[in-house]
């Protein structure tokens, strides 16, 4: 279908401009263009595929509703991420899944009196042949450590590292100064290193 897509060479901004001029396919092209990227972001941010799909759909519905607010030439990508992030936060609030726990919290005491942190507990989930399990276990541990970051830090890590947004774009998405983006990212990395140092398998790796 891509070979037939007349919008391949259009920028996001061109697509929105064309849609506003009445070419409805341009909107569909934008949805398809961001299907993988934005769903991936929401899936990572929300940790739930059903919720991610719902928020993805809502994001484009909001984009459609706010189309009249779009100023020609304004970068679409950060705007889309802004809408998606707000929708994701609302969704988390509605689903009462919003958790702000640090790695030092929620320590659980085992029957033998030993105390494990959340990351350690997640690390014990590996099953199956050791070679196959190691990679998956490592991935889960990394994801768990990012998930356990406070939301303010987690947002910048996901947007900067996994989604590849520029500092300026992240600042626009989160409506904070660029300097704050930098300092949050710096602090997030420090926290992650601290968590990884506490985790035996990651420390060894």
């Amino acid at each position: 279908m891509d070979r037939l897509d007349p919008f391949n060479n259009c920028s996001d901004e061109d697509l929105l401009a064309q849609f506003r001029r009445g070419q409805s396919e341009a909107f569909g092209a934008l949805v398809r263009r961001y299907e993988r990227e934005l769903y991936g972001y929401l899936r990572r941010y929300l940790g739930d595929p059903t919720l991610a799909e719902d928020v993805f759909q809502n994001t484009f519905l909001q984009l459609y509703k706010k189309m009249h607010q779009y100023e020609a030439g304004r970068p679409v990508r950060p705007w889309l991420y802004t809408i998606a992030t707000h929708q994701a936060i609302d969704s988390l609030r509605r689903n009462a899944r919003h958790q702000s726990v640090s790695l030092d919290q929620n320590r659980e005491e085992l029957p033998n009196g030993e105390v494990h942190s959340l990351v350690d507990l997640l690390e014990t989930h590996g099953a199956g042949p050791l070679e196959q399990a190691e990679g998956e276990e490592r991935r889960e541990s990394i994801r768990a450590s990012v998930d356990q970051l406070p939301d303010l830090f987690r947002q910048v890590v996901v947007l900067a590292y996994y989604q590849g947004l520029k500092y300026r774009e992240i600042a626009d998405v989160l409506d904070i100064p660029v300097g704050t983006v930098k300092s949050r990212l710096h602090a997030a990395l420090a926290k992650l290193q601290e968590a990884w140092n506490e985790s035996p398998s990651l420390r060894e790796a």
């Binding site: 993988r36 769903y39 595929p49 993805f56 759909q57 519905l61 991935r139 990012v146 790796a205």
Partner: peptide, 26 residues
């Protein structure tokens, strides 16, 4: 320091037909 994050770089595939359902909702 950033290297461990690479282990979780892979993104999930979107469910089939997500864009169609999105357009239907709009």
């Amino acid at each position: 320091a950033l290297e461990p994050l690479e282990a979780d770089r892979e993104t999930c595939d979107p469910p089939p037909g997500l864009w169609v359902r999105t357009l239907a909702r709009v």
